[in-house]
Simulated assay, not measured.
Amino acid sequence: MADLQHAAAAKPSAFPRILKKRPLYRYWKYRYLLLMFIPAIVYYIVFHYMPIYGILIAFKNYKFSQGIWGSSWVGLEHFRDLFALESFWQVFRNTMIISFYKLVFGFPAPIILAILLNEVRLVAFKRVFQTVTYMPHFLSWIVVSGMFIQFFSPSGGPVNVVLQMLGMKPIYFLADVNWFRPVLVITDIWKGAGWSSIIYLAALTGINPELYEAATVDGAGRFARIRYITLPSLVPVITIMLIFAAGSIINDDFDQVFNLYNTAVYSVGDVISTYTYRKGLVGMEYSFATSVGLFKNVLAFLILLIANTIAKKVNDYGLW
């Protein structure tokens, strides 16, 4: 009888321990912290998941007066028309080429900037330089494009003034098919490199200072420390960011291109987003424009999967 009473008395204390081992208990324990995620969850549901319903337009002959459900089904007709257009493939090539240039020249820029800032020992100069490089990120492309239009102006822009002083002819950079793509890459690096370097600077703070001290004692110079300590420590972060960059290679910056390009550079500067804008909003071909966007997003997802698979095989780092 005493043993039974002892077992009965032990049950209330044993039951909570069992509950604590269940995953749901952790959510209940941190329920007040999880409530902070509700605004973000609502935002993504309303503005990112609910609009997916509009994908149906790509498979219909959408009429505004009839609505999405009332419009007639056409299946893959818009995709067949899309792939048959030479203008689309030209836009597709432009998008891939510009994105490739940005990946090759723009992706290493914040890494190099973060390493340079990490090597600066004068704190005051470091803070000022960081502030200067971060500031362009907070400017809209409308402001930035206006600045660079004036900067590269063939009549009074500083660049062409210097070229004329050197005895060269002025160049209309934003209307020259040979210069428009480099301008896009340069302006993109100028605007985003400083802000993107924050991620790499955060990763650099996690490196054990004793590694640098030991390398210094062993006679390693500054470049040797960067090569054998800094860069290997950044590999996980670089891999993740490279996967994201590869996944977005089919995407383009509409605000940048739309505010800088003109009809003279359509052959090299017209990209998928501007093409979709003209077809969808200007030409009111909503179904066709939706099929272009759906094709771009599916292709971006496939590229992301391929990039992640390759990264996992190369250095065992990936998104999952």
Results as ranks from 00 to 15, higher is better:
285 E>L: 04
284 M>E: 13
111 I>F: 11
16 P>Q: 02
6 H>T: 09
51 P>C: 06
274 T>K: 03
268 V>P: 02
15 F>H: 03
182 P>W: 00
10 A>C: 08
317 Y>E: 12
263 T>V: 14
299 L>E: 07
211 L>D: 11
61 N>Y: 09
267 S>I: 00
180 F>N: 11
82 L>Q: 12
213 E>V: 05
272 I>K: 02
258 F>I: 06
301 F>T: 07
50 M>G: 07
45 I>V: 12
62 Y>R: 05
110 P>E: 01
187 T>R: 02
16 P>M: 07
213 E>L: 11
82 L>F: 05
230 T>Y: 01
117 L>R: 00
281 L>N: 00
214 A>F: 05
153 S>N: 15
101 Y>D: 08
206 G>C: 08
287 S>L: 00
180 F>K: 10
9 A>N: 13
71 S>L: 13
290 T>Q: 04
114 A>M: 03
128 V>S: 13
244 F>R: 05
276 T>V: 13
279 K>E: 13
143 V>D: 10
237 V>E: 12
189 I>C: 10
180 F>Q: 12
224 A>R: 14
65 S>Y: 02
95 T>C: 13
9 A>Y: 11
75 G>C: 01
11 K>N: 08
67 G>V: 02
141 W>Q: 04
117 L>Y: 03
109 A>N: 07
316 D>K: 15
187 T>E: 11
206 G>A: 07
120 V>N: 06
120 V>Q: 14
143 V>L: 11
64 F>N: 14
217 V>Q: 04
195 W>N: 09
110 P>Q: 00
79 F>N: 07
161 V>E: 14
148 F>N: 08
142 I>N: 10
141 W>Y: 09
182 P>T: 04
307 A>E: 00
206 G>I: 00
306 I>N: 07
271 V>M: 01
52 I>F: 11
156 G>R: 11
58 A>V: 05
251 N>E: 10
249 I>Y: 02
73 W>P: 11
8 A>L: 15
220 A>T: 06
13 S>Y: 14
318 G>K: 04
233 S>G: 15
315 N>V: 14
230 T>G: 04
77 E>F: 13
229 I>M: 04
289 A>Q: 02
263 T>Q: 15
312 K>T: 02
303 I>N: 03
179 W>E: 10
282 V>A: 10
142 I>F: 12
119 E>Y: 03
248 S>H: 02
320 W>Q: 12
218 D>M: 14
132 V>P: 07
304 L>R: 06
211 L>R: 04
20 K>Q: 14
154 P>N: 05
59 F>C: 10
209 P>I: 08
270 D>C: 10
147 M>K: 03
233 S>R: 03
219 G>P: 04
19 L>K: 07
131 T>F: 09
226 I>P: 07
245 A>H: 03
228 Y>R: 10
291 S>R: 01
68 I>C: 05
127 R>P: 13
16 P>S: 01
142 I>G: 15
81 D>A: 06
2 A>D: 13
66 Q>S: 15
179 W>Y: 12
220 A>L: 06
255 D>K: 06
115 I>W: 01
271 V>K: 00
41 I>A: 14
206 G>F: 00
